[in-house]
């Protein structure tokens, strides 16, 4: 497995070199820069996060206490705070720009500082992640084995913050993100790992994986 990953990372770097990037593109995450960012992350305050959740209109799209009311936006309840913190930073820097829909989140994160982001992350982190009742009804497609290293089949966040919780997200949202990674429109992954993984997935496989996680 490790061998495959190494090959993939090499392939990814080749892709990066081939792609001409302007100076305006925010730098991509490496393991080193991400480790630094984690060290610099302020301690989040749940109460301040709750206040900010209301003030910044988060609930409009991400729902009451972070449970999304529609398929378009992800639920944030019970998410790994580190992932939320990183997502907010990525929206602010413009790295997370799939298409112009991402500009809404970009605008909303512009007034935030790192403390605000850590507070929001803390607030969502202590909420209860949405669960589906018929989790057993869907079986994991074989191709999913590779995913579970960082996104456990339980739908929870991966060990040592290796990947966000995917359980309870909408199929639509998960497929949209997989596609964005596949076509390098979302480049927020550390070391380009998700981009290379998504490369290997067909539309059918994407759908099957998304359906599985959505039911967890």
């Amino acid at each position: 497995m490790l061998k495959i990953l190494c090959v993939l990372v090499t392939l990814w770097s080749t892709y990066l070199m081939a792609e001409s990037r302007t100076g305006q593109t925010p730098p991509l995450w490496t393991s080193e820069s991400w480790a630094e960012a984690i060290k610099a992350m302020p301690k989040g305050d749940v109460q301040r996060g709750e206040h900010l959740d209301a003030k910044a209109y988060c609930a409009t799209c991400h729902g009451d206490k972070g449970v999304a009311p529609s398929r378009n936006t992800p639920s944030l309840a019970g998410q790994d705070p580190l992932y939320i913190y990183k997502a907010l930073m990525d929206f602010k820097s413009g790295l997370w720009h799939i298409d112009n829909k991402s500009l809404g989140m970009h605008a909303l994160t512009l007034p935030m500082n790192k403390q605000d982001m850590a507070d929001l992350a803390a607030f969502y982190g202590v909420q209860v992640r949405p669960h589906q009742t018929n989790a057993a009804a869907v079986s994991a497609p074989p191709v999913m084995a590779a995913c579970t290293t960082c996104h456990p089949a339980s739908g929870d966040a991966g060990p040592a913050h290796s990947g966000p919780a995917l359980g309870g997200q909408s199929v639509y949202y998960l497929v949209r993100q997989l596609n964005a990674f596949k076509h390098h429109r979302r480049n927020t992954d550390v070391g380009g790992l998700m981009g290379s993984m998504a490369q290997m997935l067909s539309d059918k496989q994407q759908e099957a994986i998304a359906k599985f996680y959505a039911q967890q």
């Binding site: 003030k55 910044a56 209109y57 112009n100 829909k101 500009l103 809404g104 970009h106 605008a107 909303l108 512009l110 007034p111």
Partner: peptide
């Protein structure tokens, strides 16, 4: 509300598009 101010800029630009 600085969030609304910022968001409505994005809303305006996206609406135009």
């Amino acid at each position: 509300n600085t969030f609304m101010r910022h968001f409505l800029v994005a809303a305006a630009d996206n609406w135009q598009r």
